[in-house]
Simulated assay, not measured.
Amino acid sequence: MRLGVQVPSFTWSQDQGLIGDTFATIAARAERAGLYSLWVMDHFFQISMVGPAENEMLEGWSALAFAAGHTNRIKLGTMVTGVTYRHPGLLVKTATTLDVLSHGRAYFGIGAAWNEEEHKGLGVPFPPLAERFERLEETLRLAHQMWSGDEKPFNGTHYHLERPLNSPLSVQKPHPPILVGGSGEKKTLRLVAQYGDACNLFARMGKDELRRKLGILQDHCQTLGRPYTDIEKTTLDTLHITKDGRNNTLSPNAAIDLFGNLAEMGIDQAIFNMPNVSDPEPFDLLATRIVPEVEKIKVAGR
């Protein structure tokens, strides 16, 4: 089983000049701890579930490029890019650039977008949900085309590209893994089965609901003739890890048990954010006690 860390907040100090140094330290610690991946949200305002909109928020793809320069092995992805934020041709080019410069470490995390506040605040059009899903599917089709090297014109309902040239092509073949975020049963999980390489589900929905969602994904794969085992199953959670589980936090043993339970359900990679991510303690525990044990855990169905 694999573990990844998400960094959803950059509010660590009153001194904004320390943001870059702190984030670089977190990325380096995550890599040294043996984590498989590092993720940032792709938002322009902080989201209400994490903090006030005015809190510091870095642009996701630039942040990942910065992290790539401070690491050598860890995979890098957005959790996830809203399809409305960037023109899809430019988005694929951006993801390809990260993959090339990081020697093949990019994930392409993408979803239908939801945060209307930041769209209105920055003047980004926010179409109705049905249209956003149409745009998402066109973007996924275009990504596959551009990463295959096919330059023929792309004519969708919403996007028209005369020559979707993408040079250089990505290092990862056939392309960086595409993670489609969300758990919608009729559209999102169908898009995962048809175009994606990974899904991401909230761990907090509970064991029974996770199993049900995975069953729906499996049904979509069967309908489309896609092997269910082709899809990397990931979860997202918030975990506060300390050496002794003080103040209702997770001890290393409790964390290992949690990850083991996810693996029994077929989860390949558990991604989590940590309230104490700017402290060395959780990364020391991950490196010495958690990651070595979790790497031994066999994922059901693999």
Rank of each mutant, 00 (worst) to 15 (best):
T11C: 00
S13N: 11
S13M: 00
S13Y: 02
Q16D: 11
G17I: 11
G17C: 13
L18M: 15
I19D: 15
G20F: 12
A24R: 14
A24K: 14
A24N: 13
T25A: 13
I26S: 13
I26T: 14
I26M: 11
A27W: 05
A27R: 07
R29K: 12
A30G: 13
E31L: 02
E31W: 07
G34N: 13
G34R: 11
G34C: 12
V40C: 08
D42Q: 02
H43G: 03
Q46A: 07
Q46L: 02
I47R: 11
I47N: 07
S48E: 15
M49D: 14
G51R: 09
E54P: 05
N55P: 02
N55M: 07
N55L: 03
L58H: 13
E59F: 01
W61T: 00
W61P: 00
W61A: 01
S62N: 10
S62M: 10
A63E: 07
A65E: 05
F66N: 14
F66P: 13
A67L: 03
A68T: 06
G69V: 09
G69A: 13
H70G: 06
T71D: 09
N72L: 06
K75F: 13
K75P: 08
G77E: 12
G77S: 12
G77P: 05
T78D: 00
T78N: 05
T78M: 04
T81G: 04
T81S: 11
V83F: 03
Y85I: 02
Y85D: 05
P88A: 11
G89V: 12
L91S: 08
L91T: 10
V92M: 03
V92Q: 10
V92C: 04
K93D: 04
A95W: 04
A95T: 07
T96G: 00
T97F: 00
L98N: 04
D99S: 03
V100D: 04
V100R: 08
S102D: 07
H103N: 15
R105D: 05
A106T: 07
Y107E: 12
Y107K: 13
Y107D: 14
F108M: 14
F108H: 12
A112E: 08
A112V: 14
A113R: 06
E116Q: 15
H119P: 08
H119W: 06
G121F: 02
G123P: 01
G123I: 02
V124M: 03
